[in-house]
Amino acid sequence: MMNEDEVLTTLKILIIGESGVGKSSLLLRFTDDTFDPEQPATIGVDFKVKTLSVEGNTTKLAIWDTAGQERFRTLTPSYYRGAQGVILVYDVSNRKSFQKLDMWLNELETFSTKSDIVKMLVGNKIDMDKREVDRQEGLKFARKHAMLFIEASAKTKEGVQVAFEELVEKVIQTPGLWENDSRGGMSLNDRGNQSVSQGCGGYCSLL
């Protein structure tokens, strides 16, 4: 009981990648769910706090996805600030999303405040019939850039849980990355660019 209560650390995890590769569904299908497609979730989800135990260590994750802002190339430095882990997603049925990975890594390099941030590459949508990027290509890219690698399908949940667990495990094994972090260092205003919420204006529907 006491062990369960004890939280080892809190981590900021980002999910980045091109529009349409399934970033949000990765965030959603983290654990078993009963998602109702009828649900008009149009205020939009900003981020989630999740509790994850990896090898007996309980960690609290604040998981951010880009909430569509990547479409307008307006991800701000504050989005990256303080993140210990990043999940870089491409769609295995969309080669273009794979070719954009270099651009995302550059952006990460530019804005990340932690040089040893743990990176995981996720080839998503392996449930799709049409595959344009084979597993070896993904693996090779990941090795070249010292990233963890996994193929996943948010639709079938395959790989999604494993992706988060492996990423967190690696962060925990990199003590300099989290040891000295104190709680509450993150403000909810950190995203900096609040125009998304304003833009929703009168069009917001119910959750």
Binding site: V7, T10, T31, I43, G44, V45, D46, F47, K48, V49, K50, T51, K60, A62, A67, R183, G184, L188, Q194, V196, S197, C200, C204, L207
Partner: peptide
């Protein structure tokens, strides 16, 4: 008083 007190919770965009 702290969002990390929650076991699991999501936050919407700001309205």
């Amino acid at each position: 008083d702290d969002m990390y007190t929650f076991e699991n919770v999501g936050f919407t965009n700001t309205v």
